[in-house]
Nucleic acid binder design. Structure first.
Length: 359
RNA sequence: GGCCCCAUCGUCUAGUGGCCUAGGACAGUGGAUUCUCAUUCCACUAACCGGGAUUCGAAUUCCCGUGGGGUCACCA
């Protein structure tokens, strides 16, 4: 590029760069490199380089030209070359900057389509120019909309939780996350909301890509995750839960098996399993109403055939007599006023452990 | 601020001049089912940023505003 006159050595110090940038800003001009070193004749530049002077390499931006490309999602995009900076393409440490690297790397990798975030639009003309300078065929460019926060600013590592691993840790299923994300800026041709990754690959088309930046809303992800959890078979879900929450292995197999269908419709994320099944892991505290506890205990002791139907019968009698409602019994037995269906939970827990809750 | 991108319910979106008194999904509200909570089912609330122009006819085309976003590094 240097030999072709499409790039040149620059010896300007960071201090000088800072200075001219500030000066230009004060004059309300576009803060750009002033092309100071572009005037240095090649022989002199080469000599200074071989003398060991520190340098970077900048690309030459032509004057008064329109640089553009046909973006696959946005159509024709054009820039006036006069607003483009003589970008550094090789740093003083000898490493290329992103602009040089991405063009060369994509070329070597035989990349046909460059799909990237909208934030890259303004540096794209530099890339277009680099392709031209190298004499390489331009790939297709498609600039995707940016995921945004509630305040509409773009999502970023600094401000947001954008690590896919953290979503996994929070108990989101990979397929649910993928499904949800696929709907950010794109829509299924049949307006479906739930579809598999395989189907997504099959029906995806860049034409359906939207140009506006969608706001990442966790509510719909939650709903979608719940849908995916519900659509699992009991066995699949059991495996997923055990993988996610190894403590589940402490439970007897029958216990866990019986719990799965109960938790299935009540989990938005896998993390909620622990909360839902707390009573199976920790000895729950008894309620304050000791009189009620005593009555319930007596009634339960009398149950010979320990199953949820019988348990529920006894509970109904007590609720009628004491004029109380279900939440009171929940509170008494599991320490919370809501949860998995109580009679079933108690059946699974077993008579002995249930009575222990009421000691 | 310059340049660039964008603009339909609170949110994700359908919509490519007439099928739109704008459709679906999430959330919200009300109801049905029900042993709490969920699930499931039903219903309701809710949007084309503003102004011009083109057209017999604009959410859809064009222009001007306004608003939002991105970017202006020897970071990617």
């Amino acid at each position: 590029l240097i030999e072709k006159g499409k790039a040149y050595y620059c010896f300007c110090s960071p201090e000088r760069l800072d200075q001219i940038r500030k000066a230009m800003q004060e004059k309300k001009e576009i803060p750009r490199y002033d092309r100071h070193c572009r005037a240095i004749v090649p022989e002199e530049a080469k000599k200074r380089v071989s003398d060991g002077e520190k340098y970077v390499v900048r690309m030459v931006i032509p004057d008064n030209e329109i640089i553009g490309w046909d973006d696959l999602v946005r159509g024709r995009i054009e820039f006036d070359s006069n607003v483009i900076d003589d970008q550094v393409i090789l740093k003083s440490d000898g490493f290329p900057t992103y602009h040089l690297a991405v063009v060369v790397d994509d070329y070597l990798m035989k990349i046909s389509h460059v799909l990237r975030g909208e934030e890259w639009i303004s540096s794209c003309p530099k890339h277009v120019l680099l392709y031209r300078y190298f004499g390489w065929e331009l790939p297709e460019f498609a600039h995707m909309p940016l995921l945004r926060n509630k305040d509409k600013s773009k999502m970023s590592k600094r401000k947001n939780d954008v690590s896919i691993f953290s979503y996994k840790e929070k108990g989101y299923l990979p397929e649910a996350l993928i499904n949800y994300l696929s709907l950010m800026g794109w829509s299924h041709p049949e307006e479906k909301d739930i579809f598999s990754y395989e189907e997504y690959i099959k029906v995806f088309s860049i034409e359906r890509m939207q140009t506006t930046g969608p706001i990442f809303d966790i509510e719909k992800l939650n709903w979608m995750n719940q849908q995916y959890i519900q659509n699992k078979t009991d066995n699949e879900l059991k495996q997923i839960i055990v993988d996610f929450y190894p403590q589940a292995n402490e439970l007897a197999t029958e216990t866990l098996d019986a719990l799965i269908p109960l938790v299935k419709t009540r989990m938005q994320t896998l993390k909620e399993f622990a909360e839902l099944t707390e009573v199976f892991f920790d000895a729950a505290t008894t309620g304050e109403d000791t009189e009620l506890a005593h009555i319930v205990k007596e009634a339960f002791i009398a149950i010979s055939d320990w199953n949820h139907a019988m348990i529920f019968e006894e509970m109904k009698k007590i609720m009628e007599e004491k004029k109380i409602r279900m939440p009171v019994l929940y509170k008494l037995l599991i320490g919370k006023d809501r949860g998995l269906p109580l009679p079933q939970v108690l059946e699974i827990l077993g008579k002995e452990k249930t009575l222990a809750l009421l000691h």
